[in-house]
Amino acid sequence: MLEVRDLAKTFGGLKAIDGASLDVAEGSIVGLIGPNGAGKTTLFATIAGFHKPDGGRVRFQGQDITGLPPHLLCERGMVRTFQITQPFARLSVIENVMVGAYLRTADRAEAEARAADVARRVGLGDRLQAPAGDLTVAGRKRLELARALATTPKLLLLDEVMAGLNPTEITAIVDIVRAIRDSGVTILLIEHVMQAVMSLAEHVYVLNDGRIIADGAPQAIATLPNVVEAYLGRGAAARMGGAHA
């Protein structure tokens, strides 16, 4: 469904993305992990058209979409959420979600019905009329999800939808994400919450310094020495291995 090949993005002298490649198969949940500053969000933003890549290709459903602007990608069925939630603060929850729903219909009643339906699916059914600015962190994350879903995407790029949530809230979101996948939406997610990545993702890519340094099944990834080192520093894997031995 999504193929990223040798994608590169440079800011000034900084190579934020340095030839990253990844694949997302239709109907799967793929995780993208990596330490802070690895370039995960930049990679997302570049795939989703918010940054023009300096090199490499992105293909979506077999078509080259490299460098297309976000609104066209959204029309084709690829939508992203934001790590730092970006609600339309002066609008109510339902109005926020309707903005997404309006992508597929110009009719107000239809958009409203679809938005209410999506909002219920992510657990915002009882907050429809609340101003989006009044939502808690957990509520805002759900709102990000609902707005994106309302555009009826084929591929959902989720940028840390669980960051800042408590364990109960995380469990709830994990269930919602799984339900979204089961409804036929492919998902690529950036996540720091390992418990969530382990339980959701079938395949995980590890990004460090703008490069994919490993990929594989989540359980296998967690024990790779270079992945542990990327998080904990050089030699950490050996020391940990030593402690166990």
């Binding site: 989703a48 918010f50 602007p69 976000p70 609104h71 959204c74 029309e75 939508v79 992203r80 959420t81 934001f82 970006q86 609600p87 339309f88 603060a89 002066r90 609008l91 109005e95 309707m98 903005v99 997404g100 309006y102 992508l103 110009a106 107000r108 958009a111 707005r147 994106a148 309302a150 555009t151």
Partner: peptide, 24 residues
């Protein structure tokens, strides 16, 4: 009441989010 108006409000409140949701 209209889609156009909803899109304008979205642009007013957050241009990046508006773009991400398919608004030109």
């Amino acid at each position: 009441r209209s889609r156009f108006g909803a899109r304008l409000a979205a642009i007013r409140d957050n241009e990046d989010a508006a773009k991400a949701l398919g608004i030109d």
